[in-house]
Amino acid sequence: MSLRSPRFAALAISILLLLTLPAWVGNPYYINIASQILFWAVVALALNVLVGYAGLVSLGHAGLFGMAGYTAGLLLQAGHGHLVADIAAIVATLLTSAIFAILSLRSTGIGFLMITLALGQILWGIAYRWASLTNGDNGVNITTRPEFLGINLANASAFYYATLVVFGLAVISMAVFVRSPFGASVRGTRDQARRMNALGYNVWLIRFMAFLISGFWTGVAGLLFVYYNQFISPQVMALQTSAEVLLMVISGGTGTLLGPVVGAAIVVIMKNVVSAYIERWNLVLGVIFVAIISFMPEGLVPGTARLWRYGWHRLTSRKPSAGDKPGDRAQ
């Protein structure tokens, strides 16, 4: 990417805006919404590893997300320190992801979707019904947020910056992953699984590893979620959460780096706006789902990107635009 390209400029401006956001937003309510967008974007990026790059649509990620939140919440409640709780949460989420993957990778396509849905429901059922462990519908409260590099995360801006750091790491790791040989292998199993096998790849193991990567970042985001709310209840593990994250991924455009981030912003903002005026978020969620799938299957980001490239090309018709080369598109 050249320093003069519009993409670089857009990236630089975005980073600058994100870094200074608490200063120009001011109101903690909006800073908190920004934090929400960022950690939901991490889940969406995580799910996109499976949906976009591996071609495996999971409807069980709310279970993994909640697994991290509950593990940390329950350990903190039992009096353990933040470090122990956080590490245990990530380990528990990775183990759960491994079990999810082993069972759901018996199948691909619709079968995979169905099994992840059922597995996600089991975790929801445990959180909801195993009241002696999880406190059931009343959920788990945690009293403190951890310190991060010696900074107390109690206030909105501090928490925002901690989330931004995690988000940044997630985006960078995804950007590296997409260009890496392993990323190419994952995409290969999406496009031609049989051929990949014949070329010497272990298709199952590639998908399994992709699931673990996805599970890892889902767990990290689950931790941010539980620290943000200082509370977790079975509600967050319901199918609806998995569907919302999936909506973030497909509305932004699957298999792109930016798509899930934009999708997360759209869904979180819409959810907050809709919920502020009417109680009909589920209705709106359903209508958007139906509308996007029926009328804009490619997602918002690829569609907008196409229009943008077209417009840019028009404006600078003498020099070829960098965004026009097909190979330049994030795949």
Binding site: P181, G183, M209
Partner: peptide
């Protein structure tokens, strides 16, 4: 190639 598992380098 064993590189196929590498998620860090640029292909």
């Amino acid at each position: 190639s064993p590189l196929r598992w590498n998620p860090f380098i640029n292909i």
